[in-house]
Design a protein around this nucleic acid. Structure first.
Lengths: 198, 198
DNA sequence: GTCTATACGACGATAGAC
DNA sequence: GTCTATCGTCGTATAGAC
């Protein structure tokens, strides 16, 4: 807040993205103006265009970054047999999403505000994530440990259920993150037809 | 399209709401202008204000109407023991939501665009719906037919799973509505810890 | 790298003619 | 009941000073 001029290109860029993330998540892409983002960062509106060619690209970069981070983190999960893999996937999904409520909100709600070419790119990333879960379900059905009439539909149903956690979870609430993770993972396993050991 | 003037108050009102519903669902409340709605109806922008005091009220009326319709339809389900009641609820939820994809989309995505007082009113209606499902789950746990560590959390997880159907279902796709209903209901029952008879 | 100033159009909403 | 015309504001994006 001290100096008003000078060289800040390496820190102002991330701050622009952070402000856009917060504001888009809270009010929605269409409802947020470039002037608001600039005010949040502490610069004038015109200065934003040093860091992004336009508002649409700002949205796309946030969404693409989120999806790439998600896929990169997913790739670090160790291989496991189907039941353990589904349990691991569910817990990973809950944890990852609870860590980034704002990015998640944008990734799911602002799809329709992407221009066609950008939408296609994000959809492709989303499908790669879904394919990872479907592979687990498919393997489990093949091994006879899951009971699922349709792995494609089950994939979408499970992801919707797990992602729903972001609609209500609040830090410091009745349940801790580990408890929430455990309960959701157990429900996911049961939904897949696994009878739990206990 | 024929006559440009005359008395239309009884049909123009519903047409305004229908146009707003379609446009809000497709592009989002904040991204839709009163001029666009007017163009869709075939009147000038100023004429819309004969049917709604402002844009915000238009959104609120759509959401409130949707939730009231949902609760009214829910109230017509016959009483049943927990397992049958959950099966019936899941099928009802899927069917109702597939019948109104646009209203559903708005009801879930435009909450943040409601002014505080309107938000509170819609939230109260949503909670009444959730309470109906939780009552079923609670009764089932009490009778020992459901295995759920937390009925509140399970309520939200199940609703998220079931509502997710609207994200991908398209008329004329691979699966018919009855099949989708059956598969989701079976997954909901299993997630609640019911071991299916088959 | 950030500022001020501005171009130009669209916004929600209203007033008054018909 | 709908129109045209308009108010005041705000939108994205750009130009040029420093």
């Amino acid at each position: 807040m001290a100096r008003k001029t000078g060289s800040h290109s390496d820190i102002t860029g991330p701050r622009v993205r952070a402000a856009a993330l917060r504001l888009f998540a809270r009010h929605g892409y269409a409802a947020v103006s470039m002037r608001q983002i600039a005010a949040e960062v502490g610069v004038q509106a015109g200065a934003l265009y040093l860091y992004t060619p336009d508002k649409q690209t700002l949205l796309f970069d946030l969404m693409q970054g989120h999806m790439q981070e998600l896929l990169a983190a997913l790739a670090h999960l160790p291989p496991a047999p189907p039941v353990a893999a589904l349990n691991q996937f569910a817990r990973f999904h809950i944890r990852f999403h609870l860590d980034r409520p704002e990015s998640v909100f944008i990734a799911y709600m602002e799809l329709r505000n992407l221009e066609p070419a950008n939408f296609t790119a994000i959809e492709a990333l989303r499908r790669r994530y879904e394919a990872a879960l479907e592979a687990i379900l498919h393997a489990g059905v093949a091994e006879g440990v899951f009971t699922l009439p349709d792995t494609k539909l089950a994939t979408l149903a499970l992801i919707a259920m797990l992602t729903g956690v972001t609609n209500w979870y609040r830090e410091g609430g009745r349940l801790g993150r580990d408890e929430v993770e455990a309960i959701y993972a157990a429900m996911a396993l049961r939904a897949a037809g696994v009878i739990p050991p206990a």
